[in-house]
Nucleic acid binder design. Sequence first.
RNA 1: GGUCUCUUGGCCGAGGGGCUAGGCAGCGGUCUGCAAAACCGUGUACAGCGGUUCGACUCCGCUAGAGACCUCCA
Length: 490
Amino acid sequence: MEHPLHFYNTLTRKKERFIPLNPPFAGLYVCGPTVYGDPHLGHARPAIAFDLLFRYLKHLEYKVRYVRNITDVGHLENDADQGEDKIAKKARLEQLEPMEVVQYYTDRYHVCMDLLNVEKPSIEPRASGHIIEQQQMIEQILKNGFAYEVNGSVYFDVEKYNKKYNYGKLSGRVLDDLMTNTRELDGQDEKRFPYDFALWKKANSEHIMRWPSHWSEGFPGWHLECSVMSTKYLGKKFDIHGGGMDLLFPHHECEIAQSVAAQGEDAVRYWMHNNMITINGQKMGKSLGNFITLQELFTGAHKILTQAYSPMTIRFFILQAQYRSTLDFSNDALQASEKGMQRFFAAVKSMNNLVPKETSTVDIKSLRNNCYEALNDDLNSPVVIAHLFDAVKMINSVSAGSESISKNDLDELKRLFRDFFFDILGMKEENASASDNEILKDVVNLMLNLRMEAKAKKDFVTSDKIRDELTKLGFEIRDKKDGFDWTLKS
RNA sequence: GGUCUCUUGGCCGAGGGGCUAGGCAGCGGUCUGCAAAACCGUGUACAGCGGUUCGACUCCGCUAGAGACCUCCA
């Protein structure tokens, strides 16, 4: 590859060059949502971060299979083996079938992802659709001696596993430390060791989601689905596994243990973790109750918001931080993103109206490589955006007449925006429907032409009135040397 | 308590031993009938204290503060 892509591998704790196992193919698995609640801002981060990766890998002409799961079963409410299934609990609260809840929130998630212009993954498997495969993996782990059965439940034998392999290599944990640090947990009596985790859990009588198995009627443990579905669709060894940093331990650590226990070697080659979105410096999360749903952002219906923010504003906001940094959320920060993003779209519009000259006084040659360099350095989207802002400045200068651009350079500039701003960063014009409305366009142009006539007659009362009224309606009017320009703001 | 991470100007956020990040906001100017937009100019920012170094905001140590994981979490 001409542009070597590097990213930070959590497993090795350093940036590594990405060399896929079977080029030109690349396999990517990302932990998707547990569908028992409305998608919130936190869900947007990994979705967008790995959407960026997906898009960039495709841009680099890899044939990517992107698998992002839907967790619709198996995550327990409280302590590993005492709680009830989250989805079952919600179902009982709302008097709905569990699968009805799953469907409802899956649909909500999809709607939000579409609005955020997050591309659909190649495969979106559900845990509930892979019960048999999960049982097969449990059998394999049992056969290899790294699990034991107690009263119809099957647990992973962490201590035994750690004698042969290294439990904790991803999160940097040492099992001995974990042992000395053991806390009192209820209902651990079935386990040999507190850090053992369930592979299969016998369902109690009230538990609604249950499947038959050799061991009991029950349900699979929480970490199993990802091990199973990733390798099922990407192979026993595959390139990239992504997810939020909060899943690093125990979820991803257990995934590694399961895969290694089942097949004798790691499944994942590069582990990538996105950081959290914070609010007032604190992680936004369900348990803290300080999360803000995407719906609330899109409608402005939240007390810390002064207005609604469009999905593209959210996307731009998230891309303005590198995915491994925490991103502090606030109304002010969103407002800054919205303004900046609007400058982009205004510049793109005026780029398409630029008239090329014989020669260029702007230097656009380095822009493309600068953007590649930023992306190749662990997907540094904020730096890409900074370079694109340089391009915005050039466009505006040419538009203002203080600089000129050649036909070739203008074409390259257009390609630059198409490739990086639209295709890779995944930005898109939002109120296209409004400004694409021909009749609306004609009416606004009519009004503004009347205004021009008034101005020509120095009838500024009339001309200002037209401008002010249109502004009130949400239009932005910009006078030009010989004419005008306008946009409908969202 | 254990493990780990972070602390950049009013806000968000890159970066990296000596070279302007960028955006938003602010201030001054140009343009304009006035605006808006745009353009030009404008900020002695790197938590504190030591150390290493010719030179540190960037490396090391300590102190303070914040956070993450250790329990479901994106």
